[in-house]
């Protein structure tokens, strides 16, 4: 698979850009977190495309963002469970 570049992205419509980024990010995220990969990828796709391109090239950046997403999700699920328990 050839690397995704800014010019490739720029030539695509916005919705398509996110999809292209998602296709690249998903397998990387799936390797870190197989069960939450679809959700985490969706969350990360709300970030600017330029930042996502950087993450594709930097496993460290991606890893820390995935950790952040997992923490946000866990807090969210805990809150939901607490609401239901009331």
């Amino acid at each position: 698979q050839e690397p995704l570049t800014v010019s490739m992205l720029a030539s695509a419509p916005l919705q398509e850009q996110k999809h292209m980024l998602g296709e690249r990010l998903f397998p990387l995220i799936e390797a870190i977190h197989p069960t939450l990969a679809a959700k985490i990828t969706g969350m990360l796709l709300e970030i600017d495309a330029s930042e996502l391109l950087h993450m594709l090239e930097s496993p460290e950046s991606l890893g820390s963002k995935v950790d952040e997403a997992v923490a946000v999700l866990q807090a969210h699920y805990a809150e939901e469970a607490a609401q239901k328990a009331k």
């Binding site: 998602g22 296709e23 990010l25 679809a38 969706g42 969350m43 796709l45 709300e46 946000v72």
Partner: peptide, 23 residues
């Protein structure tokens, strides 16, 4: 610090064609 990530974001589903290739 507060994260800007949205836990209610829509899930991303990779293309079915990719899944087929991986089978």
């Amino acid at each position: 610090k507060k994260s800007t990530l949205n836990p209610n974001a829509k899930e991303f589903n990779p293309a079915k064609s990719l899944l087929a290739v991986n089978k």
